[in-house]
Design a protein around this nucleic acid. Structure first.
Lengths: 180, 180
DNA sequence: TCAATACCGAACACCTTGTTCTGTAATAAT
DNA sequence: ATTATTACAGAACAAGGTGTTCGGTATTGA
């Protein structure tokens, strides 16, 4: 990848993240982004077809870091059979905390909806085998609720309560959910 | 209120709800709404300053029905000291089910974010005193998680699983959350 | 019957979008 | 170091949405 491309892409991401903390996603125009990034109009469209694609790309960047890092360290340390589900959850929280700066704005307004949808897709894979099967509750529902609750936990944590440690948040979460 | 105003307002609401099932909120333009409702442009703006105000008004209409009806019947039957928290939850589900038609579209995309935020505000009042206080979990967090989980339960229920009864959903919900 | 007012429809100035173009400068490879 | 490639800037553009205004019509409630 050309050095200029990397630079421009980074400028756009940074500008976008910064703008999200001041302005709602819907209200934000492409004009705002290219003004903030100080790049030409055609340059933006050379990188991203639309504002939604930009959001998607940013989300993927974050999730690649959080989840592929998780899997990597899992393989590296051969956690797959040693670490508990609780540890994996704590692990994910650590990685999310590292990306805190980029993530915080993503919770706001309408793009929070999109970000959380993507997040839940990844979480489904992690949670799927760890739901305690109860015959009196539909598995679909239990999984959906567990994943959504964890996503909400992350949101609550990173929006104003990031002084708690990942270990603490994991403990709180498991304390409140009775199907894990 | 003038009969013509009621008619127009109703036309707008109906058109808006119908459109939400086919089109995302963000992609929807005021032009789409007035075409669907078959009213003049200036007429729309005489009723609502913006698309967001329309959404807000629709949400308020729904919540007024769901929660004020709940409170009313509570007062009428003097449920306040007799009915359990579980019954109140079931009750709310019944009222939400009645408004199912209008609500379904509201879960989609970005306006789902807004609708759920409003819903959670109301739910906070209902849930606040019924959270089991645990010293090892922040009360803020427990309340937020319970409310969000219930909101997610409603979403899951009304989006493709509305064959379950309110009583069943209440049971499932309480089965999964250990702080109520 | 009549005054009030809600609606219509057209026009408007303004903004955002996404595309296209030309010229310039940075890049990577030979 | 030279050269071909390619990313960028910047301007212009048509198309479409926004929110407002205004004069005319029709409905309403008293």
């Amino acid at each position: 990848m050309d050095r200029r491309q990397r630079r421009t892409r980074s400028l756009i991401f940074t500008a976008f993240s910064a703008l999200l903390e001041r302005k709602s996603y819907t209200a934000m125009t492409v004009q705002d982004i290219i003004d903030e990034a100080d790049i030409g109009r055609s340059t933006f469209y050379a990188h991203f077809e639309t504002k939604d694609e930009l959001l998607k790309a940013l989300c993927n960047d974050i999730f690649d870091h959080v989840f592929s890092a998780e899997i990597m360290s899992e393989e590296k340390h051969d956690f797959s059979h040693h670490s508990s589900f609780r540890d994996r959850i704590t692990h994910i929280l650590y990685h999310l905390q590292e990306k805190q700066q980029s993530i915080r704005g993503l919770f706001n307004g309408e793009c929070g909806e999109i970000f959380l949808r993507y997040l839940k897709e990844y979480l489904c894979q992690v949670f799927n085998e760890h739901i305690t099967i109860k015959d009196d509750v539909p598995h679909d529902y239990a999984l959906d609720l567990a994943v959504s609750s964890f996503a909400e936990t992350v949101r609550w944590w990173l929006k104003g309560h990031s002084d708690y440690t990942p270990e603490q948040m994991t403990a709180y979460f498991f304390r409140c959910i009775s199907i894990l």
